[in-house]
Write a protein that binds this DNA or RNA. Sequence first.
DNA 1: GTAACTTAGTTTTTTCTTTTTACTAAGTGG
DNA 2: CCACTTAGTAAAAAGAAAAAACTAAGTTAC
Lengths: 400, 400
Amino acid sequence: MSSSHQPHRAGDLLFLKRLNRSTILELVRRTPGLTRADIATQAQLTKATVGGGVQSLLEQGWLCEGELQKSSGGRPGRALHLNEQRFAMLGAEVGVHGLRLVACTPSGRVLESLNERLPLSSPEVAAERLAELLQTLMQSPSLDGYHLLGTGIALPGPVAPEDAILRVAPNLGWREVRFLDLLHAHLPRQDTIWVMENEAKSAAFGELYFRTGSIPASLVYISAGTGIGSGMVEGNRLPLLSRGHQGLAGEIGHTVLQPGGLYCHCGNRGCAETLVSGWSIRAALGINEEEDLIEAIQPRLQEPQVQLTLRRAGEALGALILNLHHTQNPSEIVLGGSLVRLGGPFLEPALAYFRDNQARLLSDSRPVPLRVIEDATLVAARGAAAQVLANVIHGSNELL
Amino acid sequence: MSSSHQPHRAGDLLFLKRLNRSTILELVRRTPGLTRADIATQAQLTKATVGGGVQSLLEQGWLCEGELQKSSGGRPGRALHLNEQRFAMLGAEVGVHGLRLVACTPSGRVLESLNERLPLSSPEVAAERLAELLQTLMQSPSLDGYHLLGTGIALPGPVAPEDAILRVAPNLGWREVRFLDLLHAHLPRQDTIWVMENEAKSAAFGELYFRTGSIPASLVYISAGTGIGSGMVEGNRLPLLSRGHQGLAGEIGHTVLQPGGLYCHCGNRGCAETLVSGWSIRAALGINEEEDLIEAIQPRLQEPQVQLTLRRAGEALGALILNLHHTQNPSEIVLGGSLVRLGGPFLEPALAYFRDNQARLLSDSRPVPLRVIEDATLVAARGAAAQVLANVIHGSNELL
DNA sequence: GTAACTTAGTTTTTTCTTTTTACTAAGTGG
DNA sequence: CCACTTAGTAAAAAGAAAAAACTAAGTTAC
């Protein structure tokens, strides 16, 4: 969301100060254990400036001091870490089959989570229930003493940038929903940050943002569930989400993969979702909406028709991944979503297709890493929480 | 190339000063005729700061003062413009069929251009000839009195970010070419900026960067010629090119559009280029490499086979554009390249496909603007020059 | 015509943040 | 134990933008 459509920020001294504070905090966040001297080197600031900045970040409770580092012939520096006891963010995902909530620390550690199945319902009902669960989560004992920075909401559909409107959620049957407004009817804003973003984009953000050590320059998260979506985040200094003009960036489920192919829900023909998605697999195998897809397929895995369907779907997913490779070319690809649980018969063809074809153009010896997340339950909710933190650290608010 | 892999820049006072100078220059560049007061409002700086910044930019020759604005009940402000007499950038495109060179002013006005056909040749030969032509261009009388900021080179293939290596140029048969090094064997660096980038990405950059007035938040340029490539540029403050991890971002010609389809040059099956590209159309219609594609087709436009081929290719292009819409979702799409000259029989199906299908997901009343560039001869070269200027204004060099 | 008002831009002083410089702290190695 | 190295702090200096006061140059009301 970030909003703030002002193209240029004021370049005053306060801005400079905050920029340096945010730089320091960001460096420690990425590589825990840094000393003041390390920061001075990496940020190209003087020791004095870093010392002052660290001082104020310690006082505000963002950082805490750790052990003395090993010395290499001089006074040892003192390690700095994110303070894990002071601030927390909430994140929630509104999914097709339920609500997932997390509370996590600035390093991404999950303090508490909730997972509730909820049948398909109206935006109003979902918002009311989510508000209740958020209240519950906030009062959880494991959050005692934490100052809550804000709440991020992940939704299964394109969210218009700047507007905080969920444009459409095909699998929920929602359209043009101002979900945050609905939520605030039951839960006060309370001067904290509220972020609302697409589910796959949130997941992508969290997967990159909470990484420490060697951080990929860019990352694509593919969310394969009832529908198929993706999100891309990149940028070295501040991680930026590719949202697109109308929030449609990453809607790979509706890229054409077979011109003149089957009709898709969206009305076009040959969309990727007609080949690979929860709903297309259900349709091909005659599995009811009420049944759990995975549970229904598990006992039928030996049937040739099931195997063929899964292989075809997997190959289509492989082509989709390859297409992302050739349009966005991320440094890393992460695959999550409920379809991952279909396992080898579905995943192997996908991975094989990408593995065999990704080096067609470039004979690059180092293939792009592709990681499969077995349990992606909390990924999107956690990523929504991540965006709250990023908003605080990089945003123009007064919290830092 | 931008390079400078340092993740964080020093936040000292000089940095702040340069940031504000660059902000001022950027604002005037985007909306010529701004007054100091306008800038102060938009940049959220005080009149005094803007006054000082403008002063130094006037002295350095970046800006010049224009007419008095109309007054609305007070002292009229003085319009500021880019100085078009002082600085210039060179840009060149190495294409499959020849070399194109331009010299242009900071506003993008072309001072001089060269266009030379060159048969397919080695990187060394091309570099030597390009060096000669650059020399010629630099000595052109219309560049008298101009200070040259640098030179940008656009190449028909993926360029690795940070490395200045052309990874591969399929239609030239080149691989792993350090083109700038070859060029510098014949032409000294001379303390100016050198930029090397993919051709479609360069074009995209130039199309966005030289725009004034209402500037789209993001733009995709599609280059449809012998092969098909694209480039995306976005970002409000400083325009950022999506390069991708290995420079493969935008290689839409090798996205799979028909799994199990025809074999592509790259070895994979069903790539978009097997359906729409200069080479696939030649193959379908039996047109020799030596003939000019457009000239060969023109007299045969009434043949049903030609019409069918062009329509099929156009529809594939339409699907490609729709796929970009659903993966990148740019605010604007620009279509250029030699295939544009095929005209209606090719373009109409493409535009119709995109027009009819782009609102499937969102019933957005305002469709994404799609502009066709009739004569894209100089677009990539000009865009390469644009990157030089952007490097000066936003980069960390001392020129500002 | 002129005084009141409005807006543009500059000059001067003040404020604030970083750097510079000098210093203290705390380890290693001969 | 003493030189040496590196980490971090403190006080003085430099430099940038802000704030306030000012001049400049138009319009509007009467």
